[in-house]
């Protein structure tokens, strides 16, 4: 092709194989890419490798082969603590805040990688996005409610102004009302220009906010498409149900 080179995707994986044990890959060769400013949701039945995929990208699960790229830069081999310096922020599903630290300390910890002069301004900016946190900044994070913890985890990820924000099932364990609030917040952040990748079990809520969805089944990318059309596409149900039938009683 002779067209002008397209800008590199915000986030991409090439034939990624990953898993905790060498002989037991859970992500089994995934090519996946996210455009700048896109909001992508990763769907799939239990055990499909959704979490493992994003953890491998974040550097928490060993990558056996293949590569990961952030804005065209190969970040496969950069250690977990370096990825956030490249602009990739990750919010794990559970234990995603430091319960023994205060709200302020949680945010300050994230800001510690920034130049000293920018730290206070960044934290203040996050406080302005999350006034609930600002009003309780001295409180121990362990004393927060489930929804507030999730907000703190997102807030902490935003302190470094990431280019890509990955969230692993932020709705887990939250009431539908709070889920709605969290997702609305994510949508707003996306509108402000942050690329978002969301792993979700909550298909309906996720498709309502995302631009595009990809569906993993058994460690491979099986289907993808615009979120708006997928919500009515029978293939989604089929992929879920098919996998569930193969899994027998092991599905949720």
């Amino acid at each position: 092709m002779s067209a002008a080179p397209a800008p590199p995707p915000a986030l991409a994986t090439r034939d990624l194989v990953a898993g905790y044990e060498r002989d037991l890959p859970i992500v089994r060769g995934i090519d996946f890419s996210v455009r700048q400013g896109e909001f992508v949701v990763i769907l799939g039945p239990n055990g499909a490798g959704k979490s493992t995929l994003v953890k491998a990208i974040a550097g928490l699960v060993p990558i056996h082969s293949g590569s990961t790229h952030l804005a065209g830069e190969d970040i496969t081999l950069s250690p977990v603590q370096e990825k956030v310096r490249h602009g990739l922020a990750f919010v794990p599903q559970t234990e995603n805040i430091f319960a023994t630290l205060s709200i302020r300390e949680n945010l300050q910890l994230a800001a510690d990688i920034l130049p000293r002069g920018r730290q206070a301004a960044q934290i203040d900016e996050v406080y302005s996005l999350f006034p609930d946190l600002a009003s309780r900044r001295g409180a121990r994070a362990g004393n927060l409610s489930g929804g507030q913890r999730q907000m703190l985890a997102v807030a902490r990820a935003l302190v470094v102004k990431p280019s890509v924000l990955i969230l692993d099932e932020p709705s887990a364990g939250l009431s539908p009302k709070i889920v709605g609030e969290v997702f609305a917040r994510l949508k707003a952040l996306n509108g402000a220009g942050i690329t978002i990748v969301l792993v979700e079990q909550n298909v309906k809520a996720a498709l309502a906010v995302a631009d595009r969805a990809v569906i993993l089944v058994e460690g491979k990318l099986r289907h993808e498409g615009p979120a708006a059309t997928l919500s009515s596409d029978p293939i989604v149900g089929e992929l879920y149900l098919g996998a569930r039938a193969r899994q027998g009683e092991n599905g949720r």
Partner: peptide, 10 residues
């Protein structure tokens, strides 16, 4: 135990 959590098959 493992297979209960992660079922890998192709």
């Amino acid at each position: 135990v493992g297979s209960r959590k992660i079922r890998v098959a192709t």
